[in-house]
């Protein structure tokens, strides 16, 4: 780039989005980070039970992949799905309430972290089964095509899912039927403890797109602009009726797989190295360098995110628990004695 003010050569995000949109994207990335930290803290303090899978370090992938989506467009998410939910526009209070198991949560306390969903905003749900969302995303794309809604589905999944049969069946069917779906693999290097090198025969997961005759691209998943550019292109292609794509966002989870992880399969140096590639300061720097935000603006957005999370946690803490007598509600649409 000749100069930072050379707009023609500026990164995609700067060329493509209005300043307000970029500011909102940074805000969402901060919200995800603060949300995850708030969830971790609440867990440590015993306010959340069960387990959870944190996406700290992967914020650019979640937010960048949803840039071209409207509320009519769908996403399917994973067990590491808090970020996707926030990126798709969820209410943070309802999310925390769900984690706290409260009646006011998105799933009325029935789903928890692993089933967080927001159908009103097009989020068809996180999933406790690796690869579980892939065929469902293809089904949502089939609906869009048949009903002519023009909606696109972004299907998030991790590197681990690329070795599930569901991945291969889903990609094949999406390609055969030319459906409007974008497969976004968040390759954070490990399926629990097993590295992609040890589990996956191809060097890049995007290479597998060739087998299903669709475009495949490996992207720096910590670079918001690069993620947005690739997924926007794939979404436009899907919307134009040209079929599915596979985008691989290479990223890293700072935290362990879940709360039981002792980090015995990777080195401290590796973790530190990836933490230095934090996507949030990188995004902030991009916006500051292009005079979209000042340092003070960034600090204000971060502080605002922190306050939002605090309020969301307070809402969750103050919300009522579900009652045991309603435990079988919603098993069926019309309650029946099973």
């Amino acid at each position: 780039m000749d100069s930072i003010d050379d707009v023609a050569n500026a990164p995609y995000a700067i060329r493509h989005y209005a300043p307000e949109t970029l500011k909102d994207a940074l805000r969402k990335m901060f919200l995800i980070r603060k949300f995850e930290e708030g969830a971790e803290d609440s867990y440590t303090r015993g306010l959340i039970h069960g387990t959870m899978h944190l996406s700290i370090g992967q914020e650019a992938s979640a937010v960048g992949s949803c840039m071209a989506l409207t509320d009519e467009d769908k996403i399917t998410s994973t067990h590491r799905g808090h970020g996707h939910c926030v990126a798709k526009g969820a209410d943070l209070g309802k999310m925390f309430a769900e984690f706290f198991g409260k009646e006011t949560g998105y799933c009325k306390g029935r789903g928890g972290s692993m089933h967080i969903a927001d159908p009103g905003k097009g989020n068809l749900g996180a999933n406790g089964i690796v690869g579980g969302g892939l065929p469902i995303a293809v089904g949502a794309a089939l609906s869009a095509k048949r009903l002519g809604t023009g909606a696109v589905t972004v299907c998030f999944f991790g590197d681990g899912a690329n070795n599930e049969g569901a991945f291969h069946e889903a990609l094949n069917m999406a390609a055969v039927w030319k459906l409007p779906v974008v497969f976004v693999c968040e390759n954070n290097k490990y399926g629990m403890s097993t590295s992609t090198e040890r589990s996956t025969a191809v060097a890049n997961i995007a290479d597998r797109a060739v087998a299903y005759a669709m475009p495949g691209k490996t992207v720096d998943g910590n670079d918001f602009s690069a993620v947005a550019e690739s997924v926007d292109t794939a979404v436009a292609r899907a919307r134009a009726g040209e079929g599915p794509s596979l985008i691989e966002n290479v990223t890293y989870r700072w935290r362990g797989h879940s709360k039981s992880d002792r980090n015995r399969y990777r080195t401290k140096e590796e973790i530190t190295d990836w933490m230095a590639r934090d996507p949030i300061p990188r995004m902030a720097r991009l916006l500051i360098d292009h005079h979209i935000l000042s340092e003070a603006d960034v600090d204000a957005i971060e502080a605002e995110a922190e306050a939002t999370i605090k309020d969301a946690i307070a809402f969750a803490a103050d919300s009522p628990d579900p009652t045991v007598d309603a435990v079988t509600r919603d098993v069926y649409t019309d309650e029946i004695a099973a």
Partner: peptide
């Protein structure tokens, strides 16, 4: 063929597509 769809021999994927389609407005 758009309404009477031959699927590949992919029972898991095919059933999942039907589930996803049912969640989003079709009656498969």
């Amino acid at each position: 063929e758009d309404r009477v769809m031959d699927t590949p021999i992919s029972e898991l994927g095919g059933a999942g597509v039907a589930v996803g389609a049912a969640m989003t407005g079709l009656r498969p």
